[in-house]
Amino acid sequence: MKKRHFLFFFIFTAFEVIAQPDRTIFLNSGFSFNNNLQLNAAKVTNSKGYVLTYGGSLTVFSVKEKYLSIGIAGKTIFASGVRNAEKFNVVTLRLVFPLKMVFPLTEKWLVSPGFNFQNNIDLNDPDFRLGYKNLWRLDYSVGMKYLIKNQWFMTTKVKLNLQNIPDVFFFNDPKFALLVGIEKSFFKDTKNNL
């Protein structure tokens, strides 16, 4: 039954896309980190990462000036840490599907709580198949947007993961992240312009 509702939701939102073709592209960067991480029974210290996310989103549903958007993004994480006195560096790519609600606070400030679905293992890993335990993870995010001018926004975001996922899956993509970035919106229907 839930699957059917989910399907109806996406059909509905697909029609909304035609009616509301608002698009956004964005670029964020920032830092992420873990606490108390263990890998194969050894403690990992100083587990952190530099994060770069880049992608776009579509407005799929809007009521007055509030709207829901879904998107797709690449996320590159340059993670590092120390395990058994060995320093490591690792670069990882994740595919992210952000889903967020955007609420205007003032003419220039907006707040955007949401979720990020993303893969938990490498895309080229033979185990990257539906049915793999811990294939996906769901991060919570809260962001603020500030309109600079001409649909250019400055953004800040906080992301965290509260799932009970084994440490090994946070090793190269830490669970807490702080990001800043820029965003460009495109409107076909000018009446919705901020």
Binding site: Y54, G74, V91, T92, L93
Partner: peptide, 19 residues
């Protein structure tokens, strides 16, 4: 350029370790 960068990064989608 941004699209090219995204596609390029997707192509190198595996974890790489530089130790």
């Amino acid at each position: 350029k941004l699209l090219f960068f995204i596609i390029l990064t997707l192509a190198f989608s595996c974890s790489k370790f530089y130790e």
